[in-house]
Design a protein around this nucleic acid. Structure first.
Lengths: 150, 150
DNA sequence: TCAATCCAGTTCTATAAAAAGACCAGTTGC
DNA sequence: GCAACTGGTCTTTTTATAGAACTGGATTGA
């Protein structure tokens, strides 16, 4: 899937990108958060080639992000459901969404919106210190481990 | 860069992935957060081919995520610095980091760590409602706009 | 109950893109 | 002046992707 793999590096960012950093995986996960569960639903919504979708779904199942479950409507087919590991990608998808909203749309340009159950727009993601104080990029640093980079 | 672009879709996640969802961009941004600024630094740290790095840096500059600034050491060379737009990717990188930490390492396996200035590990990203209550994936939904998907 | 259609894929091929590595010009350090 | 470094470009090889064709089981429906 990639020529140089990051799976063995100590940096969790590299390892995460190695797992789900390809073109399609996060879009599939986004759609899963949206409630899509069937092969054909993903295929229609994303416009992805079926071969690609098949490969990506298998990879995500293999990773433990999705799992195959019996169809909820009683048919003999199967559905793809987010696992706990997959649901834990929620902050990743939200972070991308908020960055996209903030920087990739012209004023007034229409885009979808994340709201809570009451229909209220959600706030921005916050990184709290252990004491609960909000942190920005300049408040943090990476503590390297072992001998190699990062 | 991709055969089918998502740049025109209304979903900010799709548009964000279209901009910086390739194999290298987020790793470059991660390294920039780590303080790397020079072409050679990125190249050595990532092990990326110079041609790829050159193309990615240009793309990120074109996107407004990085900008070229005169070298801070007074030499005739230039450096790549994060813009405001680039620094706003911080939650994206942190979200990936926390997901990787939680799900991609065996117990006890070494990995780098994000800490605050006092050396304390940071907390987990929180998505607050407008009223400040923490929200999870099941508390939110996407309000679609216009006629198309999402 | 038999055919038509739908669903969920798999396989194949042509092509677009990404990666590796060689090469090169200007800069700096000695 | 020479070697090493910087910041690329160019060419070749490798990989990913789209898209069409095909399959086989499930569902519909006459």
């Amino acid at each position: 899937m990639k020529l140089t793999g990051f799976a063995k590096v100590e940096c969790p960012v590299g390892r995460a990108l190695d797992a789900i950093g390809d073109w399609w995986s996060l879009l599939i996960v986004r759609d899963a958060f949206d409630g899509l569960r069937r092969f054909g639903d993903f295929q229609k919504n994303l416009g992805i080639a079926k071969g690609m979708l098949s490969a990506r779904l298998h990879k995500l199942v293999h990773l433990g992000v999705l799992e195959l479950v019996p169809a909820s409507d009683g048919s003999a087919y199967q559905e793809y459901a987010l696992t706990r590991k997959g649901r834990d990608l929620f902050p990743v998808v939200v972070a991308l969404r908020q960055w996209g909203e903030a920087h990739l749309y012209a004023r007034g340009e229409a885009h979808s919106d994340l709201v809570d159950q009451a229909g209220q727009p959600v706030g921005r993601l916050v990184l709290p210190s252990r004491a609960g104080r909000p942190l920005t990029w300049s408040d943090t640093k990476v503590r390297k481990v072992g001998a190699r980079k990062r």
